[in-house]
Design a protein around this nucleic acid. Sequence first.
DNA 1: ATTTAGACTGGATTACATCA
DNA 2: GTGATGTAATCCAGTCTAAA
Length: 211
Amino acid sequence: MTSSMHHEVDDQMILISQYYPGIYTQLVPEQGEAKPRRRRKKNKGSEGSSGGVRKRKLSEEQVNLLEQNFGDEHKLESERKDKLASELGLDPRQVAVWFQNRRARWKSKKLEEEYSKLKTDHESTVVEKCRLETEVLKLKEELSQAEREIQLLMERCDGVSSNSPSSSLSMDAMGPPFLGEFGMEGLEKAFDLLENNYIIHGLEWVNLYDM
DNA sequence: ATTTAGACTGGATTACATCA
DNA sequence: GTGATGTAATCCAGTCTAAA
C-alpha cells in the first residue's frame, strides 16, 4: 500500500503529457530518448462502473468540456481522466471511452481529409500533365517546321555552291552539312530560333527528338 | 433506414510487482 | 541483483447498439 503511494509520486515526476503527438500509432520508443514511463495505478477498490446504470447521451456541457480537453491534448493520462471525471460527474471509464472514441473518429476524419487533398492534388497533376503533353505536341510541330526550313536553306546553299569552284568537293569531305562554307548565317539563325524555343520551354534536345 | 456516439471486446504493449 | 512471470493500465481496431 505505502509502496504504491510512493510509486505514484515517482510516476508523477516521469509523467509526460505528449505521448502521442499526432495520429496514434502503437508505441515505438525513440532511440536515445529517455523512455517515458506510463503511469500505473493499483486497482482502486470502487470499480462498479460496468454494473451501474448506463448513461447514454452526455450533456452539451459535458461534451464541451471534453472537447476542450481533447483540443488541448489528445492523450488522456490518469490524473486528467480522474479530474475530468469528477468535474463532469462521470465515471473515469466513461471519460476514457470518450477519449478513445474521439481519437478514433478524429483519426478517420483526418484520413478522409488527407485522402481528399491527395485526390485534388492528383487531379490537378493530371490536368498539368495533359497541358504539358499538348505543349510537347506543339513544340514537336514547331521543330518539324524548323527542320523543313533548314532543309530548304540547305538546298538553296547546295544550288549556289554548285556554281562555285569548290563545288567538286564531296559533301562527305566537308563534314556535317551545316558546317559548309555557305549559309552559315542562315543556318545559325535557324538554329538560334530552335534553340531559343527549347530554352524558353526548358526542354532538352534529346527529349524532344526521342518523343 | 441511416447516422451518430457511447460502450464493449480482444489483442498488443508497457510499467511495475513479486518471487525463485 | 537478476530474470521470469503475473498483473494492471492503456492503446487501437473493430463491432455492437441505443438514440436522434
